[in-house]
């Protein structure tokens, strides 16, 4: 018999701790516009329960861009309805969230390709080109 056979009843209420974050995010966006400096909030470091996170997530809404990174488990980079505010979640190989950030940047740090990797890419490309 499998445990799925037994129905589950989740119960959780938001603690209200997520509310003040909106103001903080607004401030971070202002800084991004004025100085170009990106910033981030580590959500795991805050006393937020899953309901808080759900509330925050739905408050920020869904934007136009969603990126996925497969590296040691999946990471997702979702733009929220406020452009420049990204919801970043890192998962391990088993799909469990190991860290979660709100990143305020034009493009999330991890998405940008590293010059060394681009150089390596060029090398591969050259092999392809030379094989033509």
């Amino acid at each position: 018999m499998l445990p799925e056979a037994i129905p589950i009843q989740p119960a959780m209420e938001p603690s209200g701790n997520a509310r003040p974050l909106l103001r903080e995010i607004d401030d971070m966006l202002r800084r991004l516009l004025e100085t170009g400096e990106p910033s981030a909030i580590d959500l795991s470091a805050l006393p937020l329960n899953p309901a808080d996170l759900d509330w925050l997530r739905s408050s920020l809404g869904v934007g136009e861009v969603a990126a996925r990174l497969q590296a040691n488990g999946e990471s997702t980079f979702d733009e929220t309805a406020c452009p420049g505010v990204w919801w970043v979640a890192h998962r391990n190989e088993h799909g469990a969230v190991v860290a979660q950030f709100i990143e305020v940047a034009f493009v999330p740090e991890l998405i940008k390709a590293h010059p060394d990797d681009i150089a390596t890419g060029r090398e591969q490309l050259e092999v392809l080109v030379s094989g033509l």
Binding site: S39, A40, I41, D42, S44, A45, L69, A71, N72, S75, H90, V98, A99, F101, E103, E109, L110, H114, D116, D117
Partner: peptide
């Protein structure tokens, strides 16, 4: 192991150690 994987590892480790996201 890609640089992104490594960066991700460092980001999660920093988060666990309560270091600032940067």
């Amino acid at each position: 192991v890609s640089r992104r994987t490594f960066l991700k590892y460092c980001a999660t480790l920093a988060s666990m150690m309560a270091l600032p996201p940067t």
